[in-house]
Design a protein around this nucleic acid. Structure first.
Length: 304
DNA sequence: AAGACGAAAGTGGTTGA
DNA sequence: TCAACAACTTTCGTCTT
């Protein structure tokens, strides 16, 4: 991997804690999950000119095998790299993409409802994950889940959008960067109920076992949206850890706990945010924050 | 005026018979 | 299948800064 590492700063949250994933060819922010640069391997295209013997070899075609492309990225000539990094994908482009995939499929005589379904699903996945700001690695995981579901023939009879949404939700949780049902619902226009149902179905059929989401997993994302410092973030996680030790986690909504911890942490560190701001970002009400906060201060004798 | 607080009634999901 | 239940939301009035 011949990548020049520049001093990068995440444009979203300002964190310098970036991670390079050479296997998946992306640079993303460890803090908020924003993908700063995709397909970094493709920048090495000058290698080919350097070594002309290898130009025609598949091994030198550059891009890693991707599950999020319907033929795994090995044969298509569709230019994915021109897509807006923020996913403001242009409908016409998507349509032509599907059209071209179909054409290919016909040509290669591998056409079938399965492939077409997959092509539709993957463009839907692209749309949804762009809106949610999901790192490419998690998109790949989503695609993996969806493929598995398709392979087991459990997609039939369910809406593609619904299954994609459930796959997104599942992948995010599995990768430790959970999105709430609310957020996925907003990005997909599928009701929470349906996503939840599909998720349970997926988990059962694909034997995906997931622990309940930890409030701490939500903290980095919420903190960055609120513009809180890493110190506050760490403080919030510390509080959550204490709550765990006191058994105050079970039965509560993780987002509520994350919100209350962040609120308290913000007050303690002098970067105070209002309950309303925190509540809005976390997708809970102020009342919930107050309730958690009350329990929290009683049990942990944190005086604010 | 804005934020914090808390009471009371309503809502949707889980649980156990 | 249904009722009880806990967590959470909505709404609203009051207090504090």
């Amino acid at each position: 991997m011949n990548v020049i590492e520049e001093e990068n700063v995440c444009p979203d949250c300002g964190s310098t804690n970036l991670t390079i994933d050479s296997g998946r060819a992306e640079i993303s922010c460890k803090r908020c999950g924003l993908v700063i640069q995709e397909s970094i391997m493709d920048r090495g295209r000058e290698w080919r000119a350097f070594d002309k013997d290898q130009v025609n070899k598949r091994a030198r075609t550059g891009a890693p095998m991707k599950f999020a492309i319907s033929d795994k990225g090995l044969t298509t000539d569709i230019d994915w790299k021109n897509r807006d990094i923020h996913g403001n994908s242009i409908p016409e482009r998507n349509q032509s993409q599907i059209y071209r995939l179909r054409k290919w499929n016909k040509k290669l005589r591998i056409s079938g409802t399965g492939e077409r379904n997959l092509a539709l699903a993957l463009s839907e996945l692209d749309r949804q994950s762009s809106r949610l700001g999901i790192p490419r690695s998690v998109r790949e995981d989503t695609a993996l889940i969806y493929r598995e579901a398709a392979r087991k023939n459990i997609v039939r009879g369910r809406s593609i959008e619904g299954m994609v949404a459930a796959s997104v939700y599942t992948a995010c949780r599995r990768c430790g960067v959970p999105r709430t049902l609310d957020e996925v619902s907003q990005a997909s226009k599928i009701t929470k109920k349906k996503i939840g149902k599909n998720y349970r179905f997926l988990a059962r059929e694909l034997k995906i076992k997931l622990m309940p989401t930890s409030p701490a997993d939500y903290v980095p994302r919420f903190a960055s949206k609120l513009g809180l410092s890493g110190i506050t973030e760490a403080k919030a996680i510390e509080i959550i850890q204490k709550l765990y030790n006191n058994g105050l986690i079970t039965g509560r909504e993780p987002t509520g706990i994350a919100a209350a911890s962040l609120y308290v942490a913000s007050v303690l560190s002098g970067e105070k945010k209002t309950q309303r701001d925190v509540a809005e970002i976390a997708g809970v009400t102020e009342v919930t924050i107050r309730n958690r906060y009350k329990e929290l201060s009683e049990q942990l004798d944190i005086i604010v």
